[in-house]
Amino acid sequence: MKREIINIEKLTREFTMGTQTVHALRGISFVINEGEFVTIMGSSGSGKSTLLNILGCLDKPTSGSYSIDGVRVKDLSRNQLATIRNEKIGFIFQSYNLLARTSAIENVELPLLYNSKVTSEERKERAIKALRMVGLGERLNHTPSQLSGGQQQRVAIARSLVNDPVMVLADEATGNLDTRTSYEIMSLFQELNERGITIAFVTHEPDIANFSNRTIVLQDGNIKKDHINTDIQSAVKELNLLPVEDQ
């Protein structure tokens, strides 16, 4: 029996806008087990951002239950949610969200700064290890402005891994990158997934979904499709198939 990382049951989320109530999520249920690479897809307005916020413990459901790594999120306070985010979740954003004029290593250290159990030596060690894992072992002291978009996203991925999360949450992580770099990043995700890291990847690009082993498609706040991908494509292979760019 695989360990359940995410367990969602009859989850709803409503927003009140003036007198109108918007039903962003209308009661969805699914389970994500350890080691899965799930893409969550849907057009804009389908509720995928809302779902991502709830999965990331940035928002709380209106009704239904959500557990992450066995912890029920519904009853937690603002501060307890922050601790969950700090210890269990790694975030990757479309626009990288790195601190400007701050070295790669310090950017990666950031989540550990909010964890008082980690000493400063350990912090540094873990940051270097995470940067090596994403292939940036040679660029520890570069600031974001000295790095390409793909490299910046790698720093962000290293940052999401540094706290040993139970799940990495990526929000359109390839949205700002060209096809080649997207594939490079996806091959990194596949590599990380092979090492056993659970990934939830929100995207609206169908070809990205081909690299994951499961896809959940949302429409109007409901799950339209939830299927296991039997034909997983290798990002490395796709990368090699791309025409070589003229230098």
């Binding site: 501060n79 922050a82 985010r85 210890e87 975030f91 969200n97 950031l110 909010y114 964890n115």
Partner: peptide
């Protein structure tokens, strides 16, 4: 603001 959001997302509490 964005930096504050990021800090909160990676575990910074209000008090921090």
């Amino acid at each position: 603001t964005k930096e504050i959001g990021l800090r909160m997302a990676v575990g910074g509490k209000g008090a921090d």
